[in-house]
Design a protein around this nucleic acid. Structure first.
Length: 116
DNA sequence: TGGTTGACTCGTA
DNA sequence: CTACGAGCCAACC
């Protein structure tokens, strides 16, 4: 049976919604975003969506690789822009790597905290 | 129809 | 801690 996520457009929308859900000044991994969008294991799909994303308002810079590093080649245009955008939000970035916020932790845990 | 590509991830050295 | 290889998924040619 075809679930709503079988439709490419729907998956695309779900992924972008998950990205928009990342709070200002916080980050999340590709795999984490995919899981939150209801697409576990589709980290590469998330990357594709961001790469082709037409929405300038999407906080794509808050999405990192699972090891906390920026996914662009060091020194590239995107790499520099992502670094700058993150720093502008108060995120500590060193050598293309984000510190203080393990991207491996679940987004839910960060949104709701250890209390909830 | 079949091989290549990439803003990925994980296990191992 | 970093580097490399194999696995994966969907889009492209």
């Amino acid at each position: 049976m075809a679930t709503h996520l079988d439709d490419p457009a729907a998956r695309d929308a779900a992924i972008r919604a998950a990205v928009r859900a990342i709070p200002h000044g916080q980050v999340a991994g590709y795999g984490e975003v995919a899981r939150r969008a209801g697409l576990p294991g589709r980290a590469r799909l998330v990357a594709r969506v961001l790469a082709t994303n037409p929405d300038p308002g999407l906080p794509w810079h808050r999405v990192l690789r699972s090891d906390g590093r920026i996914a662009f080649p060091p020194g590239s245009r995107g790499w520099r822009e992502q670094t700058a955008r993150l720093r502008a939000e108060g995120v500590r970035v060193e050598a293309g790597r984000v510190r203080g916020q393990p991207a491996a932790a679940t987004l839910d845990a960060r949104l709701w905290g250890p209390e909830a």
